[in-house]
Design a protein around this nucleic acid. Structure first.
Lengths: 301, 301
DNA sequence: TCTCTTTTTCTCAGTATTAGAATAAGGGTC
DNA sequence: GACCCTTATTCTAATACTGAGAAAAAGAGA
């Protein structure tokens, strides 16, 4: 409590939108590495942290409403290169925003939608096990864990995160996987390996994005958040492929349909939509489900 | 970006321990209202936010290790009375710590364990529906929702949060319930009603505690966090009554036993413990379960 | 009419959940 | 020792849910 070094508080936002079964995150990349929308928290302007996040979204993406949720607060030393010895710490509150792909003014403000699997190619198992796992990641993990003889915790961590040696793959453990790879590439003889594992982002924004994806994958199961990402009416196939895109995994069509239709989370509109096969019935979200079931979501596993 | 008003960053910790089937939270109450352990974030001392929280726990409760998890960051205007017009905003990162009841040096440092249901008497349904609901809360909610004619959202919120009109009770919705009561007592003709609904805490600490209880009640279902709160070996009855204490609800003994025993989350020690009835086998947590199942917890509903 | 595609419904075996009854193992008392 | 009380533990049977696949339905185009 002698010489006070302040913290500088900011906001980083992960804005998610889905188009053509590809989950996207909104980024800016004026000079190289993509970064998330972000800005300083301004006590004089922002009555709450959430309103600060909304101001950032409004200013930088033309987004004036929609789903917004606080994710996590990041404050590690050296997370921001503006930090200097003895200077202030740059702390950032991460937010997750869900929006329709077309609600963002991407062009004018310089924002770009990016396929989020560019940054995490090992997270998309919709077309089978991602080949980068066996080609690059698993060998790196083996070396990393072997290098730590005596430290069984490291091997255990890698096993749980990446489903090694028969452990199950948990699609929510996005951050745990990213952190294994991050440590592996900074602390060991596989230095900088992470440079070849997915595209980099500015600062610690890839970590923030990993946090967001993991959170969203979990939340979809017990809260009706998918509906923020699709149109007001949709076919069950569209709903399914959106859930698959976010979760990075394939689901069984007939079972998905049964689960969703019988849970009361959606209702028929009566309309149909033409496809290249049999026309599909359209549905809409049914808000009353919130009062009927304790944890209404897409209860997939 | 003209005149910069800074944010002052602090840490608030919810430290939880269970004793005799009563969940407790660690508080200080030197002059009136209980408050949580808290302290300033010091960039010069604290490499990370989590280490700042550990420093606070170490300094104020003699706690030097154990489970610690970031909860949420609170930054609303006027959440801290130190705030003055045009002065800095006091923002606080909330942490949840789980510990054995006896691991805290409560005496010397002035910390006191408090039954957390003192602050939320409506959250404990172990002995049946809490009488405060029908005696005080439901009537207040009815008046509150009636006062907002046309605002169906308010009635819907109260219905979902408190299980009105046949909606189910969700024991995780601790914060949603607290926020209904908070708004009800500040914004309506039932002004100050909340003063009679559970004991107050300093600042917004009751909100932080509500956040913690909700988070813990949810997490217990998919992460092995209960084991941070009980001894290394325990009987299944002890485990059950601890889960019941935290969740504020009763569980069916035989089913709880089967669920827990067959899930592989615990293993027999071979020892027995005497009770006032048949002696009980003791068990211990089985860490390998983390590598076997994706979401190992006490899968209750 | 036939084929292709996609949607939608059915089936069925396996597994889990729920609620309650029944049994087991001690301690204490008569 | 027989009996009762308490708590722990196992068993049971009805019901619900799940996973994987087969089959049917409804269009479009050749």
């Amino acid at each position: 409590m002698g010489d006070e070094i302040p913290a500088r508080l900011g906001i980083d936002a992960v804005v998610v939108g889905v188009r053509d079964d590809v989950p996207h995150v909104l980024t800016f990349a004026p000079d190289g590495r993509p970064r998330l929308p972000s800005g300083a928290f301004e006590p004089a302007l922002d009555r709450t942290l959430e309103l600060a996040a909304r101001r950032v979204l409004s200013d930088q993406a033309g987004l004036h409403e929609g789903y917004l949720e606080q994710l996590y607060t990041f404050g590690d030393r050296h997370r921001d290169p503006r930090e200097v010895q003895g200077g202030p710490r740059y702390v950032s509150v991460g937010y997750l925003a869900l929006t329709g792909f077309d609600d963002v003014q991407s062009g004018a403000l310089g924002a770009t939608w990016c396929d989020w699997y560019r940054f995490f190619p090992w997270e998309d198992a919709r077309a089978g096990r991602p080949e980068i796992l066996d080609r690059a990641i698993v060998p790196l993990l083996r070396r990393w864990t072997a290098a730590a003889r005596g430290d069984a915790a490291r091997a255990f961590r890698a096993r749980v995160a990446f489903g090694l040696d028969g452990a199950p793959w948990n699609n929510e453990a996005v951050l745990e996987r990213y952190e294994c790879l991050f440590e592996l590439s900074t602390a060991s003889e596989s230095a900088n390996a992470i440079a070849t594992l997915g595209d980099p982002m500015d600062l610690d924004h890839r970590r923030i994005l990993a946090t967001a994806i993991g959170r969203l994958r979990g939340k979809i199961k017990y809260r009706p958040v998918v509906f923020e990402l699709i149109g007001e009416t949709f076919t069950l196939s569209e709903l399914q492929s959106t859930v698959e895109a976010l979760g990075g995994m394939q689901l069984h069509g007939p079972n998905f349909r049964r689960l969703v239709a019988e849970s009361g989370i959606v209702e028929r509109t009566g309309e149909h939509r033409r496809t290249s096969g049999r026309p599909a019935e359209t549905y809409r979200f049914r808000p009353d489900v919130l009062a009927e079931r304790p944890d209404p979501g897409i209860g997939i596993r």
